[in-house]
Nucleic acid binder design. Structure first.
Lengths: 194, 194, 194, 194
DNA sequence: AATGAATGAGCTTTCATTCAT
DNA sequence: GATGAATGAAAGCTCATTCAT
């Protein structure tokens, strides 16, 4: 119990600091001080700064998955609305998952290889989810069949989806652009739809 | 002349290293060593590491603007094709502008204020270019009038545009996704179009 | 215990080097090397070079206060002899407090604000001590009442007192001038006295 | 002419900057920039930073000597008033000779050997001046003969004189203490006098 | 399980000085 | 006489990591 408590405390403080100041500008020293733990303790629980950061990000990815699963498995929604819900929920969760942004930094920008696996796993998982929605949409005659070339449609959609992470969240334009959400989705769905 | 040569050499080496290793992992020491200049010389020409980085990015932004201007001012293209060309050219230039990616890091990620102005200026400039294309498209009856609410359309388009920077280039998926370009554009244009 | 040992070792080496070469010409590198500690260790114990220097000076000031207190509280001495003893003891202690001289540099010369507080505190403390001696002297009818304007007398005396720090010690003229001490004091006391 | 003009300009700017920021915190770069001269020009006229500083100080010492000579050679004054005038004039000139203070720093504190000669020369010169005043005073029966031991009296007086440089000027207490001047002098003269 | 003192490699930056022109 | 580009040694400081306890 005590050990779990310490680990949790460290993770919690690390989460806050990494998201506030970024990976580089957050030092192990500061995490230790704010968590009221010895610096050595951080290394007892996490082999390195990178591993600590990875653990923090893993937490948020799990949270994102949980939330999105609820949408995907909601069978009361038609495919076009479901994909809209998926997008909105995704944005909302990411908006509060500050460290996932750090993942972006790490993965895209800083060439932090140590985060790669988490990213790739999530990418794959999301692709599967959206695939299932699109298949549902094609089955239900909501989406165009795309001449059977659904994989391309899927790739494009994911591409846009992930692309939106940046302007929406990293630039802190969520509030500004939230009102345009419907327009965006209309255009995307129209592009997808029959 | 000699001074220009030195400056160019430093910029050139800095460009290569920054794009290869990122801002943080590139040290002034290494830039100096590879450029075969004294470390002090870097500081003679650039007041700080940040200023050197800024100069590198400014170069690439100017290059990007020059290339895009050619597309925008090409009056032989209809609006829908012009916007397609704009997007493609943008991707191509960015693909070879490795340090613009560093800008992204700087701006989005590390909150490097010193790059802010360059980014904002470019954002504004691009918005104006695309605005002119969309207006042309509405005038020529190629795009829907959007009930006169062209600004929203503009915001959404730019949002997608900028969002695409990430998955396409920073993940080095350019080659993978290049074949899907037409599909993406079809969907986007269809979303925009009448 | 170990930590105290390390701290003391650093302080001791810093004391020696600062007094020998001055604040500027003593580098943290050299202190570390001579103390056989890692440079990082200096920064573990002292946040900055300035703080280390301040700690060194604080030590000497405390020592000075302790020594002078013995004189002031010695009630077997009449005021004129006590003030003479005070002056002599002051000179003697300062003569071996090489880094207090650095304080002078810091305070007077280099305008090092970070030493200001220590200096001011000491100034105030000394003023109080001497004030008590002079009051005693006036009470005991050893010193002239100065028409009740003792503060002026006090200021002048302290002025001379502090002024003497320089020629006596910083110019290493202690040995040369030590023999003239009695003459100096005779003149000063005569100036003060009835 | 032009060459003299350049030299003068450099000296003038150096004087201002050294006195404002001190020797260490004034860089050759800044002197060159403010003097609107190339850095290389400073080295054409002065072999090193130290030599430039020395030249600046030499100027002020000459000025001090000139002013004090006027007092010493004024034969209308009795010795006690002359010594008072000497002290006052000395203070006044020093108060406006900011770089002489730097000399003090350099000589006393920073162990700048390169300034030593100037200091020693001035010390000797002043000792001669004051000696002549005291001899005049003894001759005129204004000062006590001190049992023929005038050298001691001389040393003590110079000691106090130089000691006063610090509290009066370097601590910027000139204005504060100017009103106490008469009291100080009264005490000193009383100590010296019959 | 936890501590925290100690480490050392690495960083950016400063600046007096040199020298070809 | 004057320039200013170039130098390189040195400085203060940071921080992830280790390890004896």
């Amino acid at each position: 119990m005590a050990i779990e408590e310490t680990r949790r405390k460290i993770l919690s403080v690390a989460n806050k600091l990494f998201s506030q100041f970024g990976f580089h500008k957050t030092s192990m020293d500061e995490i230790a001080k704010i968590a009221r733990k010895a610096k050595g303790s951080l290394y007892y629980h996490f082999a390195s700064k990178e591993e600590l950061f990875t653990a923090v990000v893993a937490n948020e990815i799990n949270n994102l998955k949980t939330q999105l699963s609820l949408v995907v498995s909601d069978n009361t929604l038609p495919a076009d609305e479901k994909i809209k819900e998926y997008l909105i929920k995704r944005m909302e969760v990411l908006y509060t998952s500050a460290n996932y942004h750090e993942t972006l930094k790490a993965d895209f920008f800083e060439h932090f290889d140590f985060i790669d696996n988490l990213r790739k796993e999530l990418d794959l998982w999301e692709k599967q989810q959206i695939q299932s929605i699109i298949y549902q949409g094609v089955d239900d005659n909501v989406f165009e069949n795309q001449n059977g070339n659904i994989d391309v449609l899927l790739d494009v959609f994911i591409m846009v989806l992930k692309g939106l992470e940046i302007p929406f969240f990293l630039q802190n334009k969520y509030e500004n652009l939230r009102p345009h959400f419907d327009d965006l989705l209309r255009i995307l769905i129209k592009g997808l739809g029959k």
